[in-house]
Structures are given as C-alpha cells and as structure tokens.
Write a protein that binds this DNA or RNA. Structure first.
Length: 205
DNA sequence: CGCACGATGCGCT
DNA sequence: GCGCATCGTGCGA
C-alpha cells in the first residue's frame, strides 16, 4: 500500500489502550500512525520502531522516582512525554499504564506517509526535496521529532484529543513484529524491549 | 552550587 | 568505528 491511501478509516486509540502494560503497548504501536496536526498541515508517519521503558527499569528516566522532568511519565497513560537530550534533540514518548506508574514507550522511528516535503524541510531547511531520501527522514527518535515538528511544547499533551495523536485500524493485528535489545542504553541493556518492523526501510541504525 | 553525562545524529577516518 | 556538538537535568557536596 502506498502514500496516503492507507490513511482512510483510521481512528484514534482511546485512552484505555494506553493504560495497558507498557511492553504490550510498545508492541501494538508498530504499524500505527503518528499524526501531528499543526493547524496548517497534518504530518503523518507510520510507526516502525518503539522501545518500552518501565518503573523499576534501570534504563528508564523514571527509575529514581518522579522529578520535574519525568513527572509526565507518572501520569495516567495517554499523554506525551517529550524530553530534551544531548543538548539538541527532542524525543517523543507515549505515556502508558495507570497514574502513579512511571512508564512510557519511546517512539524511535517512523515511515513518512503524508506531507513528505514539509517533513523534509523541517529536517533540511533550504535543501531541495530528494524523494530517494524519504525513508531516512525520520529513522531515529531525534529525527522524527524534527520531521514532525514535535517539541517539548507537546510535553504532557493528550494523545487522544491533542495536536499529536495516534491512529490505528482497530481490530487489525500487526502481521509481524521483530524484537531486540534496546538501543543506546547501558543499564538494563539485556531486556528485549525494542520492537520494530524488520521489513521497513525506516528502522534506525 | 558545580559538574558529569545522556533513551542522538552527523561527519570524518 | 570514533569524536564531538550542546545544554538541561539531577546527583553529590
């Protein structure tokens, strides 16, 4: 299926989806659509890579309890947790599980689906659009935030009613999801909590 | 307070 | 494969 045809008949996940077990949500998000409605445009990507981060997980920002930065992780599932890393990148997370549990799913990569040229310009301002490079526009957690225009101003916003939403075709199960250890973590590195679509060209490297 | 460092990305070797 | 940009966060003092 190509381009935007696949976007018809999609509905946002209801909040109950986000209250489920974090690892299950991470797995279920593969193949769902991440949508940023900017007011002018609707930027859409297909999620192809996620990672689960839980309470009592030494790799998780929530490991040492709530702080000003990580407070959104301890809210009820269904909001965004967007944090700033390495002095230059934002990373987008889906908060999961009931209030009081510090859990989230990091979205690591998307396939650009709609408004590709706007995403391109967000990544490479002033550079001519190159269709051949589309699969790598958003193949990393920092890259996808840049491409979709997701920033810390979206931190804490509702994923059910807010400008950033997650859509799926309910009742359809993803055909196949691959599993591995998480990327870029030192502690908790052995846990198999990274999920990805191995057939996608947009999985991070 | 001070400071080490990170759920990254990019360019160079 | 390696070094580095760049800065908010949070731990230790």
């Amino acid at each position: 299926m190509s381009a935007e045809n696949q976007l018809t008949g999609l509905t946002p996940f209801s909040q109950g989806f986000f209250l489920q077990d974090t690892v299950e949500v991470a797995r279920s998000l593969i193949g769902a659509y991440l949508v940023h409605s900017t007011g002018n445009d609707e930027l859409v990507g297909r999620i192809v890579e996620t990672e689960a981060y839980r309470e009592n997980d030494p790799a998780s920002h929530s490991y040492r309890g709530p702080t000003r930065r990580t407070l959104p992780m301890f809210s009820a599932g269904g909001i965004a947790y967007v944090y700033f890393i390495y002095g230059m990148y934002d990373c987008f997370n889906v908060v999961t599980e009931p209030k009081g549990t510090g859990c989230a799913v990091l979205v690591r990569a998307i396939e650009p689906i709609k408004n590709l040229e706007i995403m391109w310009n967000n990544r490479f301002p002033g550079t001519p659009f190159d269709p051949a490079m589309v699969p790598s526009i958003a193949d990393g957690p920092g890259k996808l935030c840049r491409a979709l225009g997701i920033t810390r101003k979206h931190n804490g916003t509702s994923l059910v009613h807010g400008p950033v939403r997650i859509l799926s075709r309910l009742g359809v199960r993803p055909s196949e999801v691959s599993v591995s250890r998480r990327i870029g973590v030192k502690k908790g590195a052995e846990l198999p909590w990274r999920f990805f679509d191995a057939t996608s060209e947009s999985v991070s490297r």
